[in-house]
Amino acid sequence: MSELAQSALPGAAYEGFVTVAEAGLRGMITVRGDLAGLAGAVKDATGCAIPAQRRVEQAGAKAVAWMSPDELLILCDYADAPALTASLATALSGQFATVANVSDARAVFTVTGAQAGDALAKLCPVDFGAMTTGDIRRTRAAQVAAAIWVSGEGEMTLVCFRSVAQYMFDLLSRAAQPGSEPKLYA
């Protein structure tokens, strides 16, 4: 069977002082509205509470990220996203809120290694030393917007627009070149 849905750079990976890999297709749903009013529907759909400012709540395969005072990003399996979007839209009908499946508009990269923060610090005006597991920070990576989630010990997940996926992969690969460690944090 042919695979119609493909991620931006299937299988792209680079091994430097950290490992850069394209994470493949990931379900992403943007929910906007008054966060307190969304709490019930989001809890039913994902099992997660509304995350605190700039935090990510995880429950199994699903996660909810705080994106702005009126925006959440739900992360789930790619195949689950359309059904989850539909059920959320039903649950929130009548409320002043929007739900959009943005899975195909995004690309996801993982940067793995003890020095993941050092590699990203070359590209982003962010103090990665102050970020702990479960933190998310929207910023820029060189010239494009990105959201960086500290998804585990020594693991950063970076979300960007799919249209800049190649640019982002090239940036991250260049930043991870062996011998170019800035040694800021590790």
Partner: peptide, 12 residues
Amino acid sequence: PCCGVTAEETEF
């Protein structure tokens, strides 16, 4: 004041 982030000029 909306997200509590202290960042440099280029992010704004």
